[in-house]
Amino acid sequence: MFIINCPYCGERDQTEFSCGGEAHIERPKQPTELSDDQWAEYLFMRKNIKGVQFERWNHIHGCRKWFNVVRDTSNDKIHAVYKMGERPPVK
């Protein structure tokens, strides 16, 4: 349980947000040319990092906008928040 600083609305309780999982997984540009292994990688395989992780969040009970969060999963501390399309801050 923690507070997230929504880039559009400011600080709100985490329960207002919905986590969309690992960020920066690129959708395949040519899906028809992917092998089964590549599909498995895209659909299922996750870093699931214990430590600093980049992830997507949606302010589902607020502005309903998506954005990115850099969070340490070992202690739930948030290091940075940035909008979709912005460059991720260097670790």
């Binding site: 498995a40 299922f44 395989m45 996750r46 870093k47 699931n48 990092i49 214990k50 999963t73």
Partner: peptide
């Protein structure tokens, strides 16, 4: 819950979320 941590050490990926 720490399976992915060990998998990372071995250089393989798993379809898990902890």
């Amino acid at each position: 819950g720490h399976s992915s941590v060990i998998a990372n050490m071995a250089g393989i990926r798993l379809p898990l979320e902890s």
